[in-house]
C-alpha cells in the first residue's frame, strides 16, 4: 500500500502549502493552546521558587528571613501574580480536559463529563483548604 502511494506523494503539480513558524498566532484556538502549554513554564518557575524556599529554610533563620523579605519586593510580587494567573489557567484547562482523557464508567455507564470535571473542582477546593489550614494554623 505505502509503496503504491509513494509515487504520488511528491506530485509536482499539486500545490503544497507550507506551515508558517507563526502558525500558533493564526487562529484563536491555536493561540489558546500555546498559552495553555506555556503555563508549564510558570509551573516550573514556582517549583523552583518552592525549592529555593526550602533551601533558605535549611540554611537557618537568617537566610529564611532574607528570603521572605525578598518575596515582598515588587518584582517578585509581579512575577508571582502573573505566575498565579497562569497556574490557575493550567488548573482550569487540566480539569476540563480530564473527562476527555479519561473515561470513567460506573456500572457500565459512562459518567457524564460535567460530573468528572466537577468532582475535580470539589477535590481541589478541599485540598486547597487543607493546605491553607496547615500553613496558617500556628
Amino acid at each position: 500500500m505505502s509503496d503504491l502511494s509513494h509515487h504520488t506523494r511528491y506530485h509536482p503539480r499539486w500545490y503544497r502549502r507550507r506551515m508558517s513558524v507563526w502558525w500558533w498566532l493564526k487562529n484563536r484556538a491555536y493561540s489558546k493552546f500555546v498559552l495553555r502549554e506555556l503555563t508549564s513554564v510558570f509551573v516550573a518557575l514556582f517549583a523552583i521558587l518552592f525549592l529555593w524556599q526550602l533551601r533558605a529554610l535549611a540554611h537557618g533563620p537568617d537566610a529564611y528571613a532574607q528570603f521572605t523579605a525578598r518575596l515582598k519586593a515588587p518584582l517578585f510580587l509581579t512575577i508571582d501574580t502573573v505566575a498565579f494567573l497562569f497556574v490557575l489557567f493550567h488548573t482550569i484547562t487540566w480539569f476540563n480536559l480530564t473527562p476527555t482523557a479519561m473515561v470513567v464508567r460506573v456500572r457500565g455507564k459512562r459518567v457524564p463529563d460535567k460530573i468528572v470535571a466537577g468532582s475535580n473542582y470539589i477535590v481541589w477546593v478541599l485540598l486547597s483548604g487543607i493546605v491553607a489550614w496547615i500553613l496558617t494554623r500556628g
Binding site: 514556582f46 497556574v87 488548573t91 487540566w94 477535590v123 485540598l127 486547597s128 493546605v131 500553613l135
Partner: peptide, 15 residues
C-alpha cells in the same frame, strides 16, 4: 499535582 496544589501554594506563599 500542579493543577491541584500549585494555586493554593502560590497564592499563599507568593501573595
Amino acid at each position: 499535582i500542579a493543577a491541584f496544589l500549585f494555586p493554593v501554594h502560590l497564592f499563599l506563599g507568593g501573595l
